[in-house]
Nucleic acid binder design. Sequence first.
DNA 1: ATAAACTCTCCAGTTAGTGGAGTGTAAAGG
DNA 2: CCTTTACACTCCACTAACTGGAGAGTTTAT
Lengths: 129, 129
Amino acid sequence: MNIGKAAKLSNLTVKTVRYYADIGLVKPLKNCSTGYRDFSDDDLAQLQFVAKARKFNFSIQECEELLSLYSDKNRSSKEVKALTLDKISEIDAKLIELKDLRRQLSFLANNCKGNDRPECPILDALADV
Amino acid sequence: MNIGKAAKLSNLTVKTVRYYADIGLVKPLKNCSTGYRDFSDDDLAQLQFVAKARKFNFSIQECEELLSLYSDKNRSSKEVKALTLDKISEIDAKLIELKDLRRQLSFLANNCKGNDRPECPILDALADV
DNA sequence: ATAAACTCTCCAGTTAGTGGAGTGTAAAGG
DNA sequence: CCTTTACACTCCACTAACTGGAGAGTTTAT
């Protein structure tokens, strides 16, 4: 199938699919005469896999690893689980950071009157070394 | 003062300070003969302000806005508060997204035995359109 | 035959820096 | 005074993961 159809069926943009092909994440055949990429059903499955993995916050590189595990019939599920647990840890770290940030910003915002006067504890806090 | 001292006192790297000068976030004087940047105390204060605002997740562009509010003695605190509340909303959205992601990944990881066998519900989920 | 829709490649831009090459300047030690 | 070391400079390339657009060729529908 052409790139447009592959993109539609994987919920990716044509640009993104082309990008994935450029970096070798999928390897569609190319029609020599027209230069059009030709995506097989397997290529499509890979695109769909990657689209889903990206939604789960896996990086492109991690998507490659997952893809190769996916196609490796001798894989052990613990490898996949390890990647997933790492990702969860990453998310946990980010959550902690963001929660702390939110707490601090809320504190500042709560102390700021938010009126037409110039006095502002938020700016004061930013200026305070 | 030279860039090295300014960097140290603002907890930024020399590279970063140079970058901030390049994009006009600070405007140190330049020694014509040597080409060395010369940071005043005010320049340093700006760097410290930006360093702190960046830690609070404000983008460079938002830092510029905050800086201009900071130096505007006719500002109204509600402008600053609005920026801060926007930032908090942004963080909230991100928190929701990450929490949901974490929930889904945990669910998958919990269902994966993580042994030497190839069967893996995580990969199954990624492959499932 | 022509117009619309689709595809291609190539280049540039996005964020907020970071790394390195090659070169010039300043301060300290001998 | 000379040399080493530390610091400074510019310029270019690179990061992640695309996105936008130009200019050109192809396919499909009217």
